[in-house]
Simulated assay, not measured.
Amino acid sequence: MNPNKALWEKGDFTKIAATMRNSGRALIDSLGVGPGMAVLDLGCGDGTTAVPAAELGADVLGIDIASNLVAAGNARAAEAGLGNLRFQEGDASDLAGIDDDRFDVVVSMFGAMFAPRPADVAREMVRVTKPGGRIVMGNWIPGDPTLVAQILKISAAYTPPPPEGFISPVSWGIAANVVERFGAAGIAPGDIVCEPATYVFRYPGPPAGLLGAFRCYYGPTMNAFAAAQGNGKADDLHNELAALFAVQNTGSGDDTVIPATFLKVTVRKPAAEIP
């Protein structure tokens, strides 16, 4: 099996996505999505940004490599009565069967960054975007002190080294890499904006509960615990993550609220020239 597919089918990311719904909706609200627009949500999970885009009247396609998340997304769309939203399985590195110049907006929040072959990902996103359309990515930043970047950093320290040639997903969180990758896909630097932004995780319980969700349902953390259990370091990993979740929590009472900084990338594809 494709290792990226195996990673995201390993757990149940819907349990993590449930803590990100408010931020997903706020992001879509900020993009001016509305009726008559065609939107692609790439690496969509079960629809954290796809569902609110469809609720605003856009015609939305969600693509994810994990078949369980595609099924969960289609179930959400059916339950909400959103006939303008559908989910299908696909690879962000190769959007086979998707026409050129199809979408007004291509969104990928913490999704396409995990696909292999980042140059191919950038090229495919540009290819399927309409002239004059936009690409919006959210990418975790390497070394950032906030939650998810630190989860990935800590998890990596307990996981066997990646195979030769592996390109870290968080390399998408470096602006220079973003400009280089989209530049190779034909986008001028002036049409690329990179800026820090914040996603907020909200969990109805203590930080230990949110950590439990990541331990049981988030592929990278699951892999780290599996490796740590094999060499007797599972308690060390748990304690390190527990301290991280506790110190990052800004919530009060029994609720956990943890903001996480990411690199928001906005790419505008040049409009077609009029002959």
Rank of each mutant, 00 (worst) to 15 (best):
Pro3Asn: 07
Asn4Asp: 12
Asn4Ser: 08
Asn4Pro: 02
Ala6Asp: 13
Ala6Gly: 00
Gly11Leu: 06
Lys15Leu: 11
Ile16Ala: 12
Ala18Cys: 08
Met20Gly: 02
Asn22Leu: 11
Leu31Cys: 11
Gly32Ser: 12
Pro35Tyr: 06
Ala38Arg: 14
Val39Trp: 09
Asp41His: 01
Leu42Asp: 06
Gly47Glu: 02
Gly47His: 11
Thr49Ile: 12
Val51Pro: 10
Val51Ala: 12
Glu55Ile: 00
Ala66Pro: 02
Ser67Gly: 04
Ser67Phe: 01
Asn68His: 06
Asn68Thr: 08
Leu69Glu: 01
Val70Met: 10
Ala71Tyr: 03
Ala71Met: 11
Ala72Gly: 00
Ala72Phe: 08
Gly73Cys: 04
Leu82Phe: 12
Gly83Tyr: 02
Gly83Met: 00
Gly83Ile: 03
Gln88His: 04
Glu89Tyr: 01
Asp91Asn: 03
Asp94Ala: 14
Leu95Arg: 13
Arg102Val: 06
Phe103Ile: 02
Val107Ile: 15
Ser108Arg: 07
Met109Phe: 02
Gly111Ser: 05
Ala112Glu: 10
Met113Ser: 00
Asp120Thr: 02
Arg123Gln: 06
Met125Asn: 07
Val128Cys: 05
Val128Asp: 00
Gly133Ala: 05
Trp140Ala: 04
Pro142Leu: 03
Asp144Gln: 10
Thr146Tyr: 09
Thr146Val: 09
Gln150Phe: 02
Gln150Leu: 00
Ser155Met: 07
Gly165Phe: 09
Val170Asp: 08
Trp172Met: 02
Gly173Tyr: 07
Asn177Leu: 10
Glu180Arg: 15
Ala185Gly: 08
Ile187Ala: 00
Pro189Leu: 14
Asp191Glu: 12
Asp191Thr: 05
Ile192Cys: 12
Cys194Ser: 14
Thr198Trp: 13
Phe201Met: 15
Arg202Ile: 07
Gly205Lys: 13
Pro206Ile: 03
Pro207Met: 12
Gly209Val: 02
Ala213Trp: 11
Arg215Gly: 13
Pro220Asp: 03
Thr221Ala: 13
Thr221Glu: 09
Ala224Pro: 06
Phe225Arg: 06
Ala226Val: 01
Ala226Phe: 03
Ala228Tyr: 12
Gln229Met: 08
Gln229Asn: 12
Asn231Val: 14
Asn231Gln: 13
Gly232Ser: 03
Gly232Ala: 03
Lys233Asp: 11
Leu237Arg: 11
Leu237Ile: 05
His238Cys: 12
Leu241Cys: 07
Phe245Ser: 10
Asn249Asp: 15
Asn249Lys: 11
Thr256Trp: 09
Phe262His: 15
Phe262Lys: 06
Val267Leu: 08
Arg268Pro: 04
Lys269Leu: 07
